[in-house]
Design a protein around this nucleic acid. Structure first.
Lengths: 228, 228
DNA sequence: TGTACATCAGTGAACGCGCGTTCACTGATGTAC
DNA sequence: TGTACATCAGTGAACGCGCGTTCACTGATGTAC
């Protein structure tokens, strides 16, 4: 095995082990020494691969965003009838939900509490943007198709229009303010739902998470005017 | 000063200091020794007041839930015209938002990632239920007043009805499934919005958090049929 | 094809630090008679 | 009002443990001629 191959393999071994540890102790208590022990090397050797604990954490964050992003993009792309926006939206929502359920600690790492003392570098931005980006692509299609929203939306004033100014540059289409607002609400609903569910706030209230989630997703699709 | 007064005062001093530390290092890294040092006593003395680190954490969690709960209840009660449900709903939402902005770390403690290795005891349940409870009281009023929902809701099937079975016991009124679904969605929207905002996911996207939040709240009130 | 040198992975010891929890203790505050 | 005893707060030392990071080093892998 070449040096380069070895390097790649060891880097991955460290990252995988780190990820396992993350699930057990959380990001704040993630320990380089414990990871090194588990991989079977001495703690100082890890520094040949990651210059510091924070760099390792960044790698884990990027990995999580990318894994989720890939799952979501694949779910969208997997829908044959590209014009069936309700189906695409549902596929995306369920992909986020499924991934979060399968990887609760990775989800908590990127969508839960920020890690104290850690500032995510700009490297993470592109990966973090994949899910919102996928949603916006569907939103654009609904705008192009001139679909009417399923839920009426209050008139959007100039201030609210300005408030949403940071999102417009990410859009390829001139989108109505009312539609954009509804998509923002769908986005917060989606992640709010998943966070409240995963972090235990629905416990004993909602008795069947999957059924309820599926219902909410179809409702959101209706509100966005995607069904029909 | 009596022994009992002293005890209360020291307990509070420890808890306040713990809370300050929480804001700096997060729940996972909260250190009894550091807190003791800051209060001006030896670390073992803390054990006269809290039997373990986890008990202290529980106290902080209950405190946070109660503070938020009290703020939310006060906001609701503060609305004179009890029949103005839109105003009550908005007051409640803004109370959550304001409190979260003022106490981001306490918010993260209760609505962010679960603390690894910590299991919240049942003691926290009553305090945690205050915000959802306040929302449900408003929901009940809207049911009693037979307000029509502002956003149409897809027919709720038997399975979804069953899935929401855990919430019905907390209701004093027989509530329509469509309304209950909308209130669940409002709840997830509210906390999803706040979490995404506070945890940095709206950064550079939404340019004016307060304006956007206010707009969303009025929209939610519309959807719930509270305005009018 | 072989040799000389450079690069790199991994070692092991060390630095300086912090942690939660236990325990025997001192001295002050409270209580019962 | 005074004395004897019980309760309690806080001390300081100790146990056993873990952490991130640095550094001089050995030995293996790669490269240039």
């Amino acid at each position: 095995m070449s040096r380069a191959e070895n390097r790649l393999e060891t880097t991955q071994a460290i990252q995988e082990t780190a990820r396992r540890h993350l699930a057990e102790v959380g990001p704040a208590a993630l320990s380089l020494r414990a990871i090194a022990r588990d991989v079977g090397m001495v703690s100082s050797a890890v520094y040949r691969y990651f210059p510091s604990r924070d760099h390792l954490l960044t790698a884990l964050i990027v990995e999580a965003y990318d894994e989720l992003g890939a799952a979501v993009e694949a779910a969208d792309t997997g829908v044959r009838r590209r014009g069936d926006l309700a189906k695409r939206f549902a596929a995306v929502c369920h992909a986020v939900h499924d991934w979060a359920r399968a990887h609760p600690h990775e989800y908590a790492l990127i969508y839960g509490s920020p890690v104290p003392g850690y500032a995510a570098p700009d490297t993470t931005i592109a990966s973090a943007a994949r899910v919102p980006g996928t949603l916006l692509r569907i939103a654009e299609e609904s705008e192009r198709a001139e679909r009417a929203l399923g839920a009426p939306t209050r008139a959007v004033g100039a201030r609210e229009r300005t408030a949403l100014g940071g999102i417009r540059p990410a859009l390829d289409v001139e989108m109505g303010d009312d539609r954009l607002v509804r998509w923002m609400m769908a986005w917060t609903s989606l992640f709010g739902h998943i966070s409240l569910e995963l972090f235990g706030h629905m416990y004993r209230g909602v008795l069947d998470y999957d059924t309820h989630f599926a219902h909410v997703v179809t409702q959101l699709a209706d509100d966005l005017g995607l069904s029909g």
